[in-house]
Simulated assay, not measured.
Amino acid sequence: MFHVEHSRPMTAVHRPRATSLAALARRRLLRNRPALAALVTLIVVALACLAGPFLTGHAPGRIYPDLVRMKPGLAAHPQPDAVRPAIDRLAFRMRLAVEDFAVKDGTVRLTLTSPKPINERSLSYLPRSDLFGPPKILERSGDGRRLVVETRIQRFYFLLGTDVVGRDLFTRCLVAGRISLLIGLTATLVALIVGVSYGAVSGLIGGAVDALMMRLVDILYALPFVFFVIVLLVFFRAGLWLVLVAIAAVEWLDMARIVRTQTLSLKGRDFVRAAQALGLTTPAILVRHIVPNTIGPIVVAATLLVPRVILLESFLSFLGLGVQEPATSWGVLIAEGSRALESAPWMLGAPAGFLVVSLVALNVLGDGLADALDPRLSEPG
Rank of each mutant, 00 (worst) to 15 (best):
R257M: 04
S343P: 04
Y125S: 01
S338K: 11
L74R: 14
L67P: 02
A91K: 03
M213W: 09
A38I: 05
P127R: 07
T263G: 11
R178P: 04
L377K: 15
P60G: 06
L233G: 14
L348G: 04
L232S: 03
S358N: 06
V164S: 12
V291P: 07
A350R: 03
A222C: 12
A275T: 05
R172M: 05
T41Q: 01
P117T: 11
I87W: 03
Y125W: 15
R145I: 01
A51N: 02
F101A: 06
Y157K: 09
W330L: 06
P292E: 11
V201K: 01
L316A: 01
L50S: 07
R31Q: 12
G203P: 04
M70S: 11
A200K: 06
G296V: 06
A246V: 05
L348E: 05
R237H: 10
F132R: 08
L253M: 15
L319F: 12
L280Q: 14
A176K: 01
L280M: 15
A301C: 09
A102L: 09
E342Y: 14
I43Y: 00
F315Y: 13
L233P: 09
I290E: 02
T171K: 03
A25W: 05
R93M: 04
Q276K: 15
D367K: 11
Y198S: 03
L253Y: 06
L341K: 09
L373A: 06
I310S: 02
L223S: 02
A238H: 07
G199R: 03
Q262P: 06
V234N: 08
V287H: 13
Q324V: 14
V4G: 10
S180A: 07
D66S: 14
A76D: 10
